[in-house]
Design a binder for these strands. Structure first.
Lengths: 116, 116
DNA sequence: ATGTTATGTAAGTATTCGCTTACAAAACTA
DNA sequence: TAGTTTTGTAAGCGAATACTTACATAACAT
C-alpha cells in the first residue's frame, strides 16, 4: 500500500539535510514552507527531500487546504536499528556470543601461523 | 596520518554492498580476495569499498605478508545509534523522554490559554 | 631467477545526487 | 473577480557514486 519502501531507508538517512528534517519535524509536524525556512537551501530542494522521505515511508503528508503538513513516521528506522543491533555488542565491548566466536577464530588463526 | 579524509559513517553504510561486507567480516576477519569472492562484483570494486570503510574508521587493515586482513572496528556506528536513540521511542510508541518533551510543550501551550 | 598471488590505483563510463531556476496548479484573500 | 500563497515538478548542471578494465607493485613459491 502507501508507497511501500520503494526507496532504501539507509540511503534516505545518508543525507545530513534529510536527517535534520527528520529531527525537526519529529518534534512537531510542519508544513513545507516552514521546514524550508529552517534551511539555507531552496524550497524546491526541501520539497525533493520530503519526497524521498515519503517514498521510503519516513514521512507522511497531511493535507490541510493548500498546506501540506509533514510528520514523521519512523517505523522504517527499525530496519536500521535491526541491522545495528547484533553489531552493537561488538563496538560496546559487551562480550556476548559473537565475541566468543571471534575469540575462537583468532585462536585457531594464530595456531595455524607457522613460526620459523 | 590518522585517517585524513573523514568520511560520514551514514554515507558509508548507505551502500548495501558495504553493509554486507561489514556483516561478513564482523564474524571473521578476511583478506580482500576472500571478501571479493563472496560478491558478484570485481575485486577492485571491493577494494574501493574497503577503502571507504577504512576512511570512516569502520574497518582496519592488518597486513600479513602480501595479504591484508580486514576487520571491523565498529565504534563509528555509535554515531548512528546515537542519532537513532531519541527517535526510537517515537516509532516504538514507548513514551519516554521525547514524549515528555512533547507533552510539556503541549502543557505550556494549554497553560497559556487556560491559566492566566 | 621466473612465475604466481594479493593487492592498490588509474582511467573511463553510466548513473545518481543535490541543488538551482522557472513555471504551473491549486487554494486561500481582498 | 483578481491577486497572493503554498506547493509540485520539469529542466539543467556540476559533483559524486559504483562500477569496469588495465596496469603496477610487492610478497611468496618453485
Amino acid at each position: 500500500m502507501t508507497v511501500a519502501a520503494r526507496r532504501d531507508v539507509f540511503q534516505a538517512i545518508a543525507d545530513p539535510t534529510r536527517r535534520n528534517i527528520i529531527g525537526l519535524i519529529a518534534k512537531k509536524p510542519m508544513n513545507l514552507n516552514s521546514i524550508a525556512g529552517e534551511f539555507d537551501i531552496s524550497r524546491p530542494a526541501i520539497s525533493q527531500h520530503i519526497k524521498i522521505l515519503t517514498e521510503c515511508g519516513l514521512v507522511i503528508i497531511r493535507q490541510e487546504g493548500r498546506e501540506r503538513y509533514c510528520e514523521v513516521q519512523l517505523e522504517p528506522l527499525g530496519a536500521v536499528a535491526d541491522w545495528l543491533e547484533p553489531l552493537r555488542e561488538l563496538w560496546e565491548h559487551r562480550f556476548g556470543k559473537l565475541d566468543h566466536l571471534l575469540g575462537n577464530m583468532h585462536a585457531s588463526y594464530k595456531n595455524k601461523k607457522k613460526k620459523k
